[in-house]
Design a protein around this nucleic acid. Structure first.
Lengths: 181, 181
DNA sequence: CCACGCTGCTTGCAATTGCAAACAGACTGG
DNA sequence: CCAGTCTGTTTGCAATTGCAAGCAGCGTGG
């Protein structure tokens, strides 16, 4: 029983990798695994061990827990892992900063759903406590506030979209034209 | 090789099992693994996969994370459980967005202590026994590229500082042209 | 044009996981 | 004394992981 449906772990890894704009071989090298194996993992043909998973997480600069949760190896019973909750609970930033952070985070989230109605149900296991972007209890200022200048948000968005993360060494001259394709 | 000396993971499992006063076979049954295999795991002769580890954790009624940490498969940075942790663990944003958020948050934190004694109000909420604390990691990984354009950060800072705090009222648009004093 | 470097994918193969079956010791009791 | 039942352990094997090597496609440029 090959049971190729190892779950969304492969898709998730590939997604993160492509989002990070790095090649399969680059990630493989960064994670210390072989390229073909990573390829098979991403396509769900192999079930990586915890060790491999951990190394891939490091290579992707993401929390290993995120991968384990995706792989279904950890019960996602972690309400604390909600960014919004954590931000709201933080006492070391000002109210203003809090609002800015929340706005930016939500903006990112919106960016990531380009209208695709097919939201993965597997990730929906973690119900986020803020279904509405606006209208929250934590607000010392009236809800009429202007969250963030759109220029700023736009700048942040474009920055996260176009920037090229790890410069691929000094091998040959690769001109990263921030071109998507 | 062939002597994977998996470390304390085996001892840890056996410890937990004996503390729970259950036999090897009982735990094996509860975890859904074979008795001999569990025996080998406990003695460090085999390196269990994440799946097996997860099942053993369930059989022991302990957090899977505790086992992963013991196995060295997870960085034990959970005690923070603050905004940074949540951001790092978030699976719904891209790597790029993650770094941006982290940068902004840290920038805010720095803003708030204009020279005050550095104090970290960390909320200790570790619910699982971690007898062997591993190295602690603080701050974003510096081995990467320049985080955020300073223009952006500066704009954010000035925005959070200059925006009218408790009485914005009907302000409509807020154009942060606060370049001058 | 073909070499070169890059992208990812497919193929054999060593090493490993994980299990079923059988083994050794201790304790109970007929 | 031997049957029965625990304890944990060892042995052989199917299935799988994970990798080195090689394949095919794409874009650049000598």
């Amino acid at each position: 029983m090959a049971l190729p449906k190892v779950g969304s772990i492969g898709e998730y890894i590939r997604e993160q990798r492509t989002q990070a704009k790095i090649s399969l071989r680059q990630l493989a090298a960064a994670a210390g695994v072989s390229n073909p194996y990573l390829s098979q993992i991403e396509r769900g043909l192999r079930k990586p061990s915890a060790e491999i998973l951990n190394q891939i997480a490091k290579g992707l600069h993401i929390s290993a827990q995120a991968l384990y949760v995706q792989a279904g190896l950890i019960e996602d019973r972690e309400p604390d892992s909600d960014v919004l909750t954590a931000i709201r609970a933080d006492t070391l930033i000002t109210e203003r900063q809090r609002q800015v952070l929340i706005d930016i985070y939500e903006s990112f989230r919106k960016e990531n759903r380009p209208g695709a109605p097919d939201e993965d149900a597997r990730t929906a296991k973690n119900a986020h406590p803020t279904p509405e972007p606006h209208g929250n209890d934590a607000g010392s200022s009236p809800d009429d506030e202007a969250p963030l200048p759109e220029e700023l948000l736009t700048a942040l968005k474009s920055f996260t979209e176009t920037s090229a993360p790890p410069a691929p060494a000094a091998n040959g001259h690769v001109t990263p034209e921030t071109k998507e394709g």
